[in-house]
Nucleic acid binder design. Structure first.
Lengths: 184, 184
DNA sequence: CTATACATGTAACTAGTTACATGATTTA
DNA sequence: TAAATCATGTAACTAGTTACATGTATAG
């Protein structure tokens, strides 16, 4: 589960309550991910059982007690291992974004490799969709009806895949290279 | 549930077995959606109970019997109603793509309105992310470390939102307008 | 002989949503 | 006086994944 890892990234930046984590998700991490407070509380509960996080309960007057969560050493280790391990071959953008966000300097070589890998998956799909496009719809201006609509959906696929490739090219250009003398 | 609607779209184009629907998902509809055969069989079962689809069982020698599903009048009505009704305000691309794919000529005015609505949601988010970008990272070339990585993830959000807007602009330009005399 | 296509499903699980429930403080 | 913010959760449900189970025909 990647929500677990996203929470670890957030907690590795700074500790906070479930409520605060929900709000952070609505803002920064939520640029590409939404998680409800219910889901976050549930996940934090399981993570506590698994020793990835701990919390300190703080009494407050007028408000319910709050639980301030922080990442444990086990959590930090689990996160780093996850970042260093290639993900699934579905090319999940959310998962990759979490890894980019959470990678420590020592994780960067593995991260770059993973970005390359995911970029290749999306480039391949973009190519595949473009081949469908030219094969099945050689004259897009002449289309109408159901065929036009099918074409437009395919166009969405092409643009989405190519957009991901463009983003990852930006990422690779900006991320520090391990060996600046030998170009990639 | 939108898988239900995606299956109705597929069956409204032509009838088929659960297996065939799975394969069609892997190809055309699967450009932006994946569904496993297990999930499709389960969903077809529920849809049969709800009267959206029916099947005819066909014996085959050497192969297990197959169930050829087709859409019912209720299913067709349900699909059309769903297409004509605005969706959630999360701006789900998958859902919109299903509507574009499934809309009959008489659904087009409502579809255009929905595309406009979803385009506006994504344009708003693109703007919001760009405002974060210029406020929090005025000099992107000077960034490094965690801050650079946060910026790159935000860039992914900007590109993704803008990419969706660009796609929907293409859709609006290509889809026939109800009144060609008054420009939008 | 191995993989792929055809054809169906169950069981157990993980992920995520929606509705409900409580209650104080601050801002408009 | 109404809404938003802070703060926690449970219960019921829908959606989707992974592992298991069976069996033939055909192409390489």
């Amino acid at each position: 589960m990647a929500l677990e890892h996203a929470l670890l990234v957030s907690l590795s930046e700074r500790s906070g309550t479930g409520y605060q984590l929900t709000r952070r998700f609505d803002r920064s991490i939520g640029h590409w991910w939404r998680a409800s407070h219910q889901q976050i509380y549930k996940t934090l509960g399981r993570m506590t059982e698994n020793g990835l996080v701990t919390y300190v309960e703080q009494a407050q007057d007028g408000k319910p007690d709050k639980k301030v969560y922080s990442i444990t050493d086990t959590g930090r280790k689990t996160l780093s291992e996850w970042i260093r391990t290639p993900g699934t071959d579905t090319g999940d953008r959310r998962e990759l974004a979490t890894k980019i966000r959470g990678a420590a300097p020592s994780d960067l070589p593995d991260l770059r490799a993973e970005v390359h890998r995911i970029r290749a998956l999306h480039a391949e799909r973009a190519e595949l969709f473009r081949s469908f496009e030219s094969r099945d719809y050689p004259h897009p201006d002449a289309l109408s009806g159901a065929e036009l609509q099918q074409y437009l959906v395919l166009r969405g696929g092409v643009l989405s895949e190519q957009g991901t490739v463009d983003w990852l090219d930006e990422v690779l250009a900006a991320l520090p290279s391990p060996s600046p003398t030998s170009a990639d």
